[in-house]
Amino acid sequence: MQDNILFYLVFLSQLILISYYLPSKVLARMRHVISRYPPSEYPKLYPQDVGCYKKSHRRFQLFNHFWLLIGVLIIAADAWWSHTYGGGVGKAFPVFFGMFQFMPMLWLELSEFGQFKLMRKSNTNTKRTAELSRRRLFDHVSPALVFSVVGLFFATIVLDLYWHDFTWGGDTLVRAVTLSLVNMLYMLIVRFNLHGKKLNPHQSYEDRSRQVETVSRTLAYLSIVISLFFIYTAAGDAYDLKAYEHVIFSAYFQLIALISIGNIIWGQPLESLNFDVYKADASAN
């Protein structure tokens, strides 16, 4: 019973964090941008009518509230079910549900690509600018952090193999492949941020550098957390550490959310961004 109460509390905190607290911070940030940098003064920031943004903000809020409600209903139903019949939701449920909770944020990210496309389309400036300096990974993240990521990646695979007598069993192989794919994806994202196409045509060089720094640091921390989580699951298999697994899974997902969304909210304060490039008379891109 105590285990269940602890699980409900941690799962409730996951619901509140991912579907209420962080989205409300993101929403407040977006609303602040509209009020502080209005379309009349910063027209290049709004390739669409401002009403469209307000509508999508409401949709984002509703989408998050929907998952929050579903989550609370699931907790209530599970409490009733386990009280009446025993049992309950599966151990991986918080992670499974967390993926749905991330959908509004994913939708927001994808719609941002659409906004940048519209910005590029409506950009009539014939002058293009670039800084004549090379962007390098170690100018944005410390080598120690990158080596920690690489070290933990190999440590995870070696420890997993060590605990499973150096045989590539089903779970060991799945974890190694998943970890490799996730890290490869992160490397591609960092590479795209460093050398890839400038999605926002008006973004200043300093803002681009800051973006590279935030993205690289966030992905490095995420990779470390994922490696540590995989070490925990491998150890869990080897030493039968199944108690509080639900709680650990949920805490892991909350940490992932805090790092990924939190780094955007707190890692890139609006005051540090150059909004002058969105003014009507700003000639430089």
Binding site: R128, T129, A130, E131, L132, S133, R134, R135, L194, H195, G196, K197, K198, P201
Partner: peptide, 29 residues
């Protein structure tokens, strides 16, 4: 412009330059 930058000593001899891909992507060329 690169020659001008060299002549005005805005970039020093031996300084690294952006890769072709980086510069092309930044300038959308």
């Amino acid at each position: 412009q690169i020659k001008q930058a060299v002549l005005s000593e805005q970039i020093a001899p031996g300084a690294p330059l952006p890769s072709i891909r980086q510069l092309a992507n930044d300038l959308d060329l």
